[in-house]
Amino acid sequence: MDALNAKEQQEFQKLVEQKQMKDFMRLYSDLVSKCFTDCVNDFTSNKLTSKEEGCINKCAEKFLKHSERVGQRFQEQNQLMMQQLRR
């Protein structure tokens, strides 16, 4: 258990926020590349077809929901692991 004093804490808090923002950006770019590979396969025109658009919408929404679910489970499992380590 690492204990930090007030100044370190502040610094650390800032770091955490930065990390989270960075992670969110990375998630976004992942999402784009994922849905692009899965949905956009027709390069006969430079506009997205309506089918592709629908696919991308669903893909994006589903991916975010998936990540949220993984996030929930991740947290649960992490807590479980911490409890086991403490014992």
């Binding site: 899965d38 696919c55 589903k62 991916f63 993984v70 991740f74």
Partner: peptide, 20 residues
């Protein structure tokens, strides 16, 4: 976490996006 999202998406989520 990111690995997990990626791996589990590959293993679990179908690529035919019929529903959101």
């Amino acid at each position: 976490f990111n690995q997990l999202v990626d791996i589990c998406h590959k293993k679990c989520i179908g690529t035919s996006y019929n529903a959101s």
